[in-house]
Design a protein around this nucleic acid. Structure first.
Length: 298
DNA sequence: CCGACTACCTGCCCGC
DNA sequence: TGCGGGCAGGTAGTCG
């Protein structure tokens, strides 16, 4: 499911439940997802208060009071759901997990106790198990291999046309591939790259370097693209992300940005640009589907 | 150093 | 109805 807007939506769902709560138990139903869980994972998490739930690119970051941070990635099919007990639901001696109805791909459960004494469970489900959980000290996060060399966020003011120009100057690689490179922009994925290019009327096949002037400055078209990247990400976050296939938010509700797709997954359907209406085409670039309008994306 | 390709894994959808 | 092939939001490792 997840590119940046979906991960941000998940973060916003988890934060109110997790922040300030203490992890009474971390239940691992297998020894690995895509990678083995960290050594002493449960031991390092159990008993800790959760200080905050953050995000970097497509990663969720759960800060613990002991200075460790859990780095979580949802892969392609990961999702979280929250089960909250009403106050007083749990009588002493009752096991929390007796109330949980687990399904086949529920791999991890965070058993939580809020400051009020209310209990809750945050359950990670991931059929394909491309997701993973890592851990490191907060102070070493920036040097962690996962984040070292990672590019800027396409939210806020971090991304600029100049940054894109620097990254793309002289590159013969297709623009689509350059935009998917997490070392340039962190958090863009296949859907939103296609959408941003469509909004910008720019072909995904164009050479990345063709949007940079000889002086190294961004062309006007690159300036347009940069603003559309930020817009489409902001629009998608506002819509609660995109819910494709079985994905849901932490409360089970669905994002609705997929209804706003103009290019992604619309092969053969008419281009939505005014006075175009030509069919959207699907091609494969570096092994992944690209959807675009050959008529008005140049 | 780069870019292209493959592996990882399950489920769904489509055509035969 | 059943089955095989293709495809899916991701990243990391290998190879040229």
């Amino acid at each position: 499911m997840p590119e940046l807007p979906e991960v941000e939506t998940v973060r916003r769902g988890l934060a109110p439940v997790m922040e300030g709560a203490t992890v009474s138990r971390l239940e691992l139903r297998r020894r690995d997802l895509r990678f083995p869980f960290p050594d002493q994972f449960a031991e390092n998490v159990e008993g800790q208060e959760i200080v905050s739930v953050g995000r970097r690119a497509k990663y969720l970051l759960v800060d613990l009071a002991n200075g460790q941070v859990i780095i979580m990635h949802l892969g392609m099919s990961g999702s979280y759901r929250i089960e909250e007990d009403a106050h007083g639901d749990i009588t002493p001696g009752t096991f929390h997990h007796e109330k949980t109805r687990l399904s086949a791909h529920d791999h991890v459960t965070f058993h939580l106790v809020k400051p009020s004494g209310q209990t809750a469970r945050v359950i990670y489900n991931d059929p394909r198990r491309f997701g993973f959980m890592l851990m490191c000290r907060r102070t070493e996060l920036a040097d962690h291999p996962t984040f070292k060399g990672m590019g800027v966020e396409p939210v806020g003011n971090a991304l600029t046309p100049e940054i894109l120009a620097t990254a793309m100057a002289g590159k013969a690689t297709p623009l689509k591939s350059a935009l998917l490179d997490q070392r340039v922009i962190a958090g863009l994925g296949n859907i939103y790259v296609c959408e941003a290019l469509w909004r910008s009327h720019i072909s995904p096949k164009r050479k990345a370097g063709s949007l940079v002037k000889k002086s190294g400055n961004p062309t006007d078209r690159l300036i347009v693209l940069e603003s559309h990247i930020r817009d489409v990400i902001a629009d998608a976050i506002k819509a609660g992300g995109s819910s494709l296939r079985d994905h849901a938010q932490t409360d089970g509700s669905l994002g609705y940005f997929q209804h706003s797709f103009a290019a992604y997954d619309r092969e053969g359907e008419p281009c939505r640009h005014d006075e175009c209406g030509k069919p959207i085409k699907r091609i494969v670039q570096s092994g992944r589907s690209t959807f675009y309008c050959p008529s008005c994306q140049r």
